[in-house]
Computed example of a mutant assay.
Amino acid sequence: MLSVAMRYIKQKDIAEDATQEAFIKAFKHLASFTGEVSFGAWLKRIVINQCIDYCRKLKFTDELSDSNLKVIDEGFEDDWKVENHITVNQVKDALEALPEKYAIILKLYLIEGYDHEEISGILNIKENNSRIQLYRGKKYLQKQLKQLNNERFA
């Protein structure tokens, strides 16, 4: 669970605190575990929520809502191709370099596998905000990976 926390909080000591708080919450609310999902998935969700709470408290995130929102075509979500020579570690590094408001949503969507409804519930934002932030984060990530590609041939 610490590795999950480290995806969201880059400082190990703070990630450890968030993980510990998540375990305490899980223990206190063990009776609410219904078994609809695996125990690991239930605990992981608590850890992620705790990390996001820590990020908000420590002001690691920017405002996640936008005032002038437009509906974005969901077809973009299927296009996640990268150049063949780009490694998984390079993608992870580029993801870590993103602004937090994009990185959190990209991690929830790509790594944790949450859909927009779940992300909106976790972050307490509208589903459309989740889509927009994912779209913007994806464009930002693609831009960084394109720079890596250009540096390779420079």
Rank of each mutant, 00 (worst) to 15 (best):
residue 119 I to C: 02
residue 64 L to F: 00
residue 135 Y to K: 04
residue 104 I to N: 01
residue 130 S to F: 01
residue 30 L to H: 12
residue 124 N to G: 12
residue 31 A to V: 15
residue 93 D to A: 10
residue 54 Y to K: 02
residue 68 N to D: 14
residue 71 V to Q: 09
residue 87 T to C: 00
residue 110 L to N: 04
residue 74 E to L: 09
residue 150 N to S: 11
residue 22 A to S: 08
residue 88 V to D: 04
residue 6 M to N: 07
residue 133 Q to W: 08
residue 11 Q to M: 13
residue 17 D to V: 12
residue 53 D to L: 13
residue 25 K to V: 07
residue 112 E to A: 03
residue 99 P to I: 05
residue 139 K to V: 07
residue 91 V to D: 00
residue 93 D to M: 08
residue 16 E to G: 06
residue 18 A to K: 03
residue 39 F to T: 06
residue 57 K to H: 11
residue 121 G to C: 07
residue 5 A to G: 05
residue 86 I to E: 00
residue 89 N to S: 08
residue 117 E to H: 10
residue 3 S to A: 15
residue 147 Q to H: 15
residue 50 Q to F: 09
residue 5 A to C: 09
residue 21 E to D: 14
residue 87 T to R: 02
residue 70 K to I: 12
residue 33 F to P: 03
residue 135 Y to H: 06
residue 149 N to P: 02
residue 90 Q to A: 04
residue 30 L to V: 14
residue 137 G to S: 06
residue 108 L to D: 01
residue 17 D to W: 14
residue 6 M to G: 05
residue 92 K to N: 10
residue 34 T to F: 12
residue 30 L to Q: 14
residue 75 G to L: 07
residue 21 E to M: 12
residue 23 F to P: 02
residue 121 G to I: 04
residue 154 A to T: 15
residue 145 L to M: 08
residue 138 K to I: 05
residue 125 I to S: 00
residue 49 N to P: 09
residue 11 Q to W: 13
residue 73 D to W: 09
residue 115 D to S: 06
residue 124 N to W: 12
residue 153 F to S: 08
residue 48 I to T: 03
residue 52 I to N: 00
residue 138 K to D: 03
residue 29 H to A: 13
residue 30 L to F: 14
residue 65 S to A: 10
residue 112 E to W: 05
residue 14 I to C: 06
residue 82 V to A: 02
residue 131 R to A: 04
residue 36 E to S: 15
residue 3 S to M: 15
residue 138 K to W: 06
residue 100 E to Y: 11
residue 116 H to Q: 05
residue 21 E to G: 10
residue 128 N to A: 12
residue 1 M to V: 10
residue 67 S to W: 11
residue 48 I to N: 00
residue 77 E to H: 06
residue 106 L to T: 02
residue 133 Q to F: 09
residue 153 F to T: 05
residue 152 R to H: 09
residue 21 E to S: 13
residue 65 S to N: 09
residue 65 S to H: 05
residue 148 L to E: 00
residue 105 I to H: 02
residue 56 R to Q: 10
residue 66 D to I: 05
residue 120 S to R: 00
residue 104 I to R: 03
residue 103 A to Q: 06
residue 12 K to L: 14
